[in-house]
Design a protein around this nucleic acid. Sequence first.
DNA 1: GGTATTTGACCAAT
DNA 2: ATTGGTCAAATACC
Length: 248
Amino acid sequence: MSSNIDQKAVAALLRGQGCANSLKTLLQNNKSSSVSTEQLINTILNSFSLALSFVDSPNHVPHNESFLQNMTSHVPQRSSKKKNYGAEGLVFYRDESLTPRDDGFTWRKYGQKTIKTSPYQRSYYICAYAKDQNCNAKKRVQMIQDSPPVYRITYVGKHVCKAFAVHDDTYGSELIKFDQVVSNSVMPQLATIEEQEIIMEDEATNNIMNQECDINDFLVDDDQFWATQFPAFSSEDLMFFDKIANLD
DNA sequence: GGTATTTGACCAAT
DNA sequence: ATTGGTCAAATACC
């Protein structure tokens, strides 16, 4: 599993797996929710369709074309509550189980805060080369679930330091170059996008992700993605997996 | 002694 | 007034 296409296929499969797990949780708990089983099923099917399209033909568009478009080419229009990081800023999230993995960069911790909305503290990191090379890349790491441990990592800004080149072969070109070099098939509008986020959950999913996937394969504005998949959601409800997790 | 982390204080935004 | 993000002195670690 080494090509970018394969990784995208895995990404889609993992998304489907996550939804399937969520559906399972819903069915087991038999709780009412604004997330309907039909919506989950549709998302699962679309995920598999997308994955198959990558495996079958990398250039082939899935039968549900809008799904792929939603995954790749929408422009975020996030709440004004969030900071605007400007053209040079990027924000995206990923949740990781266990200890957040080494993402290929050297970070220096510069702060830690207790966050009102979470019982866990949030740690703040800045690129270790921030001073030497005027690199403004930062990341925030916050545990969002204790057992199993799941972390939300938010990347802000982009690396302009030379450090990323060292890891290029290991982690994939898109992963560590942020919006500097991006496959258009994955993120055609990334250069002009101010914020990107991705939410992932499920320990098994993340274990696979940690081994094989490229962050930019998941550079999807989750709010918009899930808004299109689940129109009934309000903007505040679009942390879909968080919502599902809270059902337990 | 140098480097990294911790933690309370400060600041800006809301 | 509250909150999240950052700063910087103190502390820990090698």
